[in-house]
């Protein structure tokens, strides 16, 4: 009987958590926009969240593209279909790997940093300070970080895709000898702007909202102690990764199924 108790209580806690998170997000985003105050904050956060993630995204994109080129060639050459390497690399990246891997890397690098930063602000009473100074910490601290995450992650995914395709090209054409013209022309006839690229962007945006939201919520509600913050950081990475993978399946089924 107590197992059902625990299960029920866990489910209720999780639902309550989702509710809390929704309220937090609504309070952070709804309201009169104040561009003069918010823009400098947004730019700073774009730097912290976007620019500083660029290196890991670009390097990962390059390597994944190269692996796709290599592995793809190895598989396709058995069917005599190595001309299809171009579309294989491009479609894998644009539809799936670009949005998903970018989201996972982003959750690990920027998401955990956001959680730790906000958790630390709560632990050092900076958030309470803001409240007592009659400044809404949700609008001032949470909102710029949210928009920065939602804006930068899809951009990072685009960069990931571009670099990955280039990596696949380098391995496939320059190293393994697939025909240059064939690589690009077969790719171009298989990749559709709306179906593939736009859908990939839509996925990135959805993932960006989820990852940033989880990271901010976990930081905002972290227990303000060292073990509390480290637990919150771990939870951010775990929860947002699982959410991204689950949503990826749902979105893929809707878009391509």
């Amino acid at each position: 009987m107590s197992m059902f108790h625990t299960l029920g209580r866990n489910i209720l806690n999780n639902i309550q958590g989702v509710g809390q998170a929704s309220i937090m997000l609504a309070q952070a985003l709804v309201g009169k926009p104040q561009p003069r105050k918010m823009l400098p904050l947004l730019i700073r956060q774009l730097y912290v969240v976007g620019v500083q993630s660029m290196l890991i995204i670009l390097i990962s994109g390059l390597f994944i593209g190269m692996v796709l080129g290599l592995q793809g060639f190895t598989i396709l050459v058995d069917f005599g279909a190595e001309q299809a390497l171009g579309p294989m690399v491009a479609l894998s990246l644009l539809r799936e790997l670009g949005p998903v891997v970018t989201a996972l890397l982003f959750a690990g690098r920027a998401g955990s940093a956001l959680t730790a930063e906000i958790g630390l602000m709560r632990a050092t009473e900076q958030l309470s300070s803001l409240e007592m100074m009659a400044v809404d910490p949700l609008r001032r601290v949470v909102a710029p970080r949210f928009w920065a995450g939602v804006i930068s992650m899809p951009l990072l995914a685009l960069m990931f895709n571009a670099v990955g395709i280039y990596g696949g090209f380098t391995v496939g054409v320059q190293w393994l000898g697939v025909d240059d013209g064939a690589f690009w022309s077969v790719m171009q006839s298989s990749v559709h702007w709306q179906d593939d690229i736009m859908n990939g962007v839509i996925k990135s945006v959805v993932f960006a909202v989820v990852v940033t939201w989880v990271a901010l919520f976990k930081g905002y509600t972290a227990t303000p102690t060292s073990p509390g913050i480290s637990a919150a950081t771990t939870q951010t990475v775990v929860y947002s990764s699982l959410a991204v993978l689950g949503l990826d399946f749902v979105l893929t089924a809707i878009m391509f199924g």
């Binding site: 685009l158 895709n161 571009a162 395709i165 690009w184 171009q188 990749v191 559709h192 702007w193 690229i197």
Partner: peptide, 13 residues
Amino acid sequence: AALLFLALQVANT
């Protein structure tokens, strides 16, 4: 730049 690359070089425009 990435977007332009994808749009022009990769996709069927």
